[in-house]
């Protein structure tokens, strides 16, 4: 027993209540004022944080895979915005976007629907606020069937579809949406390989698509690809 021995039971309980978040706002303010001045009290708090934290060992749950991509994009996109001009879109992959710049933007052309075949991969790409919903399904022949269920580009803007392959440093453009709300586009095999474990995203771009080969506008919606 060292410094904490100078603290009585009342403080031991108080520090525990503080860590558990059981104190009222007023009590918290009083306690924090003391914390700033009393190293021994800070030690008590640390000991509680330590002692209680293993209680959480029993609640482990793996978060969905798509969440990491969202977090990574938000973290690194925000870095980019902070480091450069304000209002830069939150695309975390932009900084690693050289590879994407090498990929030419293919414009989708609406093709007559072909007979339905069971897809190998699919994704439902929906904006959080429900303003845009797009279904995408990849056929065994490598044809991506895209159905825009609801929503569309902002006035004077275009929608562009991107694939972020698992572990890829940058998104790859799959093309700019045509006016039609249901279209198909053949994909080269190299791109198809990225669908398993990948993520599809739709960004807001100038007419004709991103001029840089990497997303330049807001990410409107993104979703993990399901392998069927």
């Amino acid at each position: 027993m060292t410094e904490q021995a100078t603290y009585d039971e009342d403080d031991i309980a108080l520090a525990g209540e503080y860590v558990l978040r059981l104190l009222s706002a007023e009590e918290v303010a009083g306690f924090e004022a003391r914390l700033a001045a009393e190293p021994g009290l800070r030690l008590l708090v640390t000991e509680w944080q330590e002692g209680l934290s293993s209680l959480a060992d029993e609640v482990e749950e793996t978060p969905p895979a798509a969440l990491w991509r969202r977090i990574e994009a938000a973290a690194h996109g925000a870095d980019q915005a902070a480091g450069q001009r304000r209002g830069l879109p939150l695309w975390g992959w932009l900084t690693g976007g050289l590879a994407a710049a090498l990929v030419a933007v293919a414009v989708f052309f609406a093709i007559d629907p072909s007979p339905a075949v069971a897809p190998t991969h699919q994704a439902r790409i929906a904006a959080e606020d429900g303003s845009l919903t797009v279904l995408a399904a990849l056929s065994p022949e490598g044809e991506l069937h895209v159905i825009r269920e609801s929503g569309g580009p902002r006035p004077g803007r275009a929608l562009e579809l991107w694939l972020i392959a698992d572990g890829a440093p940058a998104p790859v453009s799959l093309g700019v949406f045509p006016e039609a709300d249901d279209f198909r586009v053949p994909l080269p095999e190299a791109l198809r390989a990225g669908f398993t474990g990948g993520t599809l995203a739709i960004s807001d771009e100038p007419p004709g698509g991103s001029p840089t080969g990497a997303p330049t506008g807001d990410v409107l919606a993104a979703a993990p690809v399901q392998t069927l």
Binding site: V59, E61, P63, L67, A75
Partner: peptide, 30 residues
């Protein structure tokens, strides 16, 4: 993330809320 997501999920009970909270946690840590 598994442990921290477990904490979020247990406290917030809804998965979407817990996912948002976990994102906030890692952004703060970053």
């Amino acid at each position: 993330s598994s442990k921290l997501f477990g904490i979020c999920l247990r406290i917030l009970r809804e998965r979407s809320e817990a996912e948002d909270a976990l994102q906030e946690v890692y952004l703060r840590v970053w």
